[in-house]
Simulated assay, not measured.
Amino acid sequence: MDDPAAARAAARHAADALDAQLIAPLRARIGDRPLVMAPIGDLHALAWAALPSCAGRAVTVVPSAAAWLRAATRGGAPSGPAVLVAGPRLPAGEKEVAALAAADPDAVVLTGGAAGAAGVTAAMDSARLAHIAAHGVFRAEAPLLSTLELADGPLTAYELERLRRPPGVVVLSACDSGRSAVRPGDELLGLGAVLLGAGTRTLIASVLPVPADRTADLMLGLHARLRGGTGPAAALAAAQQDLTAEGDGLAHATAAAFHCIGAG
């Protein structure tokens, strides 16, 4: 669609229609409380934050109620320093990581040639938080070959399976990094599913392509709230509201693309 105004109107109409079907019938019961969603099928890829009833609300998306309970009650979270990674060919990602590092002098920062797959996965083991700003590719036909682009090539979901003690919180500032393929029985396969299965408590990632500059703005707002002690789902919701307050369609689309997955 070549007309931006028409595209925004179509997106609002779709969001209103989905909201009326999925959330509105429950609105009187849920009030303004946080939501935990265990979608089925294609609803795993829905941009929940775009729905009017979810705007500004802490929303957590989970593979199942059992998976949410495991994540929410998992003890002994890793306490190692945060890991901040910037992949290649992404100037906005490098600026994003530099700004995050300035606010966390103890963080392990991997950029340029140091941001290779072996170094990144080694640093992620036992980190309390890992943030990776990189180009992401989701492969629906082979979801475990979905990738994050690092200095020496792609980091696949298979390689993330080798983490002995994955970070408690992982933020993937990358296109499509939160997408999963849905297999029979609602089994999810993808980068996020691997991390949650390995022991990560919370993943924040995008289910859509996102522009780097706007994503960086969202990430800085998210981390400022995480540092202040706000939980991941609430921190993401507040950062999304701040970004959409700017009013332009690109800001709205970027904010809506990100999910809090696992335990909020």
Rank of each mutant, 00 (worst) to 15 (best):
I40H: 08
E94A: 10
D152G: 15
P105G: 05
A235N: 12
A14R: 10
A11S: 01
D217I: 13
S64T: 07
A140G: 15
A7L: 09
G192L: 05
P91W: 04
R74M: 01
L163E: 02
G56Q: 10
L43R: 10
A212M: 04
A45R: 12
L196G: 01
D16N: 03
V120I: 09
A212C: 02
A114S: 10
A101E: 11
E96T: 12
A98Q: 11
A17Q: 06
I204W: 13
D104W: 07
L148S: 12
L163T: 01
L236E: 11
G192Q: 03
T156F: 09
E187T: 10
A77F: 00
V207H: 10
D176L: 15
M37P: 03
L220G: 14
V137N: 15
A117K: 14
A140E: 15
P34K: 04
E187S: 09
A151H: 12
R214A: 05
A58F: 05
G119T: 12
L243M: 03
V109K: 03
A234D: 14
P154R: 02
E96R: 03
P52Q: 01
E96H: 07
G247C: 02
D42Y: 06
L69I: 06
A103N: 08
S79R: 01
A212V: 03
A45L: 14
A6G: 08
V171M: 12
A55G: 09
A11N: 02
L69E: 13
P63T: 09
A238E: 12
A15G: 04
V97F: 04
S177Q: 10
A20V: 06
P167R: 07
G113M: 04
E187D: 06
A224T: 03
M219H: 08
D42G: 09
H252W: 13
L250E: 15
E141S: 15
A115H: 11
R165T: 00
P184D: 06
R29K: 07
P63R: 14
V182Y: 08
T111Y: 06
S206P: 00
L90I: 12
V207A: 13
S53I: 07
A235Y: 12
A28V: 04
A181K: 14
V171F: 03
D242T: 13
A10Q: 02
A5L: 10
D19T: 00
L69N: 07
A47T: 15
G264T: 04
L243A: 14
E141H: 15
H131V: 15
P232T: 13
F138G: 12
G76W: 04
P154L: 04
L222C: 11
G119E: 08
V120R: 03
P63H: 10
D42K: 08
V210E: 01
H259P: 07
A127P: 01
A253D: 09
T60R: 02
A114D: 11
A67K: 10
A50M: 13
L203H: 11
L18R: 05
L196K: 00
G190Y: 02
P211I: 05
A24E: 14
G264P: 13
R179Y: 10
E149F: 11
I261T: 14
P81A: 11
P4W: 07
L172E: 08
D16E: 06
P166R: 01
A245L: 07
C175T: 08
R33Y: 08
L150R: 01
H131E: 10
G112T: 12
G112I: 14
